[in-house]
């Protein structure tokens, strides 16, 4: 007899493979999307680079960041945007339609964690161009910035820190999305809130130190944009500080726990109020 934990992990893993296999099959019915996404990623990237160049016209640095450093931030932003298109957007924008049509009942009656189901049910391949472009930009920026730019990657152990911080960024981003999407249990029309999130996270295109102090505080403590791009970028550039790293991991843990708690609460409210 297998132990229950291992059996659970196997079941979840198999479910995930199945989820993603079926959703990829559904998405590939629209091949034109691939071309559109590709052009859109290239266009957005070119535009962002253009604006970044305009911002650097006034001096060699932006909020104390060099050109290649700012490129790393932009690369991370593009990467996260791709992740959003791949996983967050297709899944979490669906919660509201589950609530509207009542199919959330089916999700809640599956013998599998409902937050897992709602967050991982589908995957869209259309964020992959952005992920590739983001990785490419980061690599190029690090190579261009010379040996000291990639200081964060000199030893294998040091690679772990940026990776951990990137993971933290993904977790924070996921939690923000999930919390906003879960609010649709109470306010059915709130799904626009995820759009608001997408538009305000645009702030992550630039290092957080480029903003005036008030906005910097806002982007660190209220809407943790700083932890999404700036902190991992600093680690990649070898400028990571222990304080920020610990802070980032802590914020990620808090956000995830918060999303979990909110979902518990949302379920209870859904199941005690719906008719």
């Amino acid at each position: 007899m297998e132990r229950p934990l291992i059996r659970d992990i196997r079941c979840y893993w198999r479910s995930l493979r199945c989820f993603w296999g079926t959703s990829l099959a559904a998405e590939l019915e629209y091949p034109l999307n691939a071309a559109i996404e590709f052009v859109s990623v290239l266009g957005n990237l070119a535009g962002s680079l253009f604006v970044l160049q305009l911002l650097f016209a006034g001096g060699p640095s932006l909020g104390g960041w060099s050109w290649s450093g700012a490129l790393v931030v932009l690369g991370l932003y593009t990467l996260l945007d791709g992740f959003t298109t791949c996983v967050l957007q297709p899944n979490l924008s669906r919660i509201v339609s589950h609530v509207q049509t009542g199919t959330l009942d089916y999700v809640l009656l599956k013998p599998i964690d409902s937050q897992f189901w709602l967050s991982a049910r589908t995957v869209s391949p259309w964020g992959l161009p952005a992920i590739a472009a983001g990785l490419g930009l980061i690599g190029w920026a690090l190579a261009q910035g010379g040996p000291e730019a990639a200081a964060g990657l000199r030893s294998p152990g040091a690679v772990l820190l940026p990776l951990a911080l990137l993971l933290a960024a993904l977790v924070i981003l996921y939690s923000l999305w999930f919390v906003l999407a879960a609010l649709s249990i109470w306010f059915v029309k709130v799904w626009n809130a995820t759009e608001v999130l997408r538009y305000t996270l645009v702030a992550g295109r630039y290092p957080v130190s480029a903003y005036p102090p008030a906005l910097r505080l806002l982007f660190t403590f209220v809407l943790p944009v700083a932890f999404l791009t700036t902190v991992p970028a600093e680690a990649l550039l070898g400028r990571g500080s222990a304080l920020w790293a610990i802070g980032s991991l802590l914020v990620a843990a808090l956000c995830l726990a918060g999303s979990r708690l909110l979902w518990r609460f949302a379920q209870r409210s859904y199941t005690s109020a719906s008719s």
């Binding site: 911002l55 006034g58 001096g59 909020g63 005036p212």
Partner: peptide
């Protein structure tokens, strides 16, 4: 916010 923090303007 970004523009006011940079010298580009």
């Amino acid at each position: 916010g970004v523009w006011s923090g940079s010298g580009a303007g």
